[in-house]
Amino acid sequence: MTTSLVDESRAGGGAELPPIPDGAVMLTVNIQRFNPETDDAPHMESYRVPAQPGDRLLNVLHYIKWYIDGSLVFRRSCAHGVCGSDAMRINGRNRLACKILVKDLLGSNNKAEVTVEPIKGLPLLKDLIVNMEPFFDAYRAVKPFLIAHGNEPSKERIQSQTDRARFDDTTKCILCAACTTSCPVYWAEDAYVGPAAIVNAHRFIFDSRDDAADDRLEILSDSEGVWRCRTTFNCTDVCPRGIQVTKAIQEVKRALMFRRV
């Protein structure tokens, strides 16, 4: 169904449409909609939105929510790629709506159409919102916090730059779940801890100040742990922070294989 831009009857809150800026293209946005109270299954709906090439997709979603259909729901908070709440499947790839620009979504033939679906593999709640609890359960399972034995130091725990560099990449994770929900192993078997949990375990396993590498490696050597990874690189492709996710997973495998970190 195509909802016209000027269809006042569906306007969320009846807000007055802002003027269309110069250089805007009419973007057709296909969004997977699902209302658990009325729908048996998700369906696609289309919206036409005037968008500038420099707009983020998040602006486009806001336009739809604010001016066309106020019932559309999606998560977002920071709008600057920091909080990790707006990972969604954009043209089939997991992206943050707040980081991807409209100009990057226009095809080579400048086809002004984009498809937005929720991330795959987590229970769908409504529209673009999925239940993130299974994802965070896997995250909690790897004990993502510093565990140090012995006496509390009275000062900062000192670490050399070389030691700090070992896990620098994996400190950048914002827990958006883009990686885990792009992994075909996770789609097939959601007991798999998934790339994000491994990334966050890596963050502490390779930290010289941490004493619980054994515990975390033990958890990850389980049958639902790192050995399920089939090196498809989907996770690395989608990570909005550019983390070398597959590399981190392989480093954990290596630590398990050679029994040292």
Partner: peptide, 20 residues
Amino acid sequence: APRAPRRRVRTGSNFEMYSW
């Protein structure tokens, strides 16, 4: 010290590792 010494780690059941 440029780098803390490599730490030995203990790991549990390794069946999936040997399979891999």
